[in-house]
Design a protein around this nucleic acid. Structure first.
Lengths: 134, 134
DNA sequence: CTCCATTGCTACGTTTTCAGTAGCGTTAGA
DNA sequence: TCTAACGCTACTGAAAACGTAGCAATGGAG
């Protein structure tokens, strides 16, 4: 190569190419907690935007990527794909060629635990209404 | 005031001064769902970074702002304050002059619902270990 | 075969959110 | 008065999410 300096590129604002970060999992330090306790990993995982919603939308059966995207109100595909990767990586979801994305046994156990939240949310709504905060 | 024109300010990249956005609540449209269903508001609320963690840290009693900040592993005060505002606004937290921040009755009911997640997280950890995904 | 629709997904520029640090106004005690 | 802790705000830079466009692969229909 001729020893010309390469074009300086102006060093604009180009972020370092966006490497995928692995999902939070038990046994590893997570945001705000270095202990590796499983419940901290869970809090980190389901405290991420869209994670809970995705599980919720899959509660009654598998959905394709695009169906899931629509069910989530038009979530952008890049974020959806990132979250699906997190959930597959942590064993909560799997991708079946025929049906699309669906929960594993473990994932179903988790959403069963979360099911009573619907009832709580209803009480929450009534309470806020009563107290004028709605 | 003297009627001098004000300094033009250059109009750089100054974001519109950061107005606080109200917390997701039942009866209002939330991210990815316009129905206003309570459970959707809940999913939006606890799907925000630090919300679950804050509730978790308050599970066994009230904490002051600074104690809570430390318990959350050094969360930045601006974000902590924003989340506390969300949680007060939605009736899950209250601020007592003497003791600091603590959960309301409603908040305690929610965290009681979430308590079994600890057990699930333990099973999750074992399962990932078995399947080599740890 | 070509045409067309659908699927899963990547690229990329813009906007929103979060992080990290400094520091202010107040209250209380020594 | 000095010091310390309190709750919190301001500001800058980094990370995450958004929105849109579009690509490679698959599977019919004609």
């Amino acid at each position: 190569m001729a020893p010309h300096g390469k074009a300086p590129k102006k060093a604009k604002k180009t972020a370092p190419k966006a490497v995928r970060k692995s999902a939070p999992r038990p046994g590893r330090p997570v945001r705000g907690s270095a202990t590796g306790r499983p419940v901290m990993a869970l809090i980190d995982l389901i405290g991420r935007r869209w994670v809970l919603r995705i599980l919720w939308e899959l509660r009654s059966g598998p959905l394709t990527f695009r169906a899931l995207q629509e069910a989530c109100g038009g979530i952008s595909p890049s974020v959806l794909n990132a979250r699906l990767a997190d959930l597959k990586e942590t064993g909560l979801l799997e991708h079946e060629e025929a049906e699309g994305y669906r929960m594993t046994q473990l994932g179903r156990e988790l959403t069963e635990q979360l099911a009573p939240l619907t009832g709580w949310a209803e009480r929450w709504a009534r309470q806020l209404e009563k107290s004028g905060k709605a």
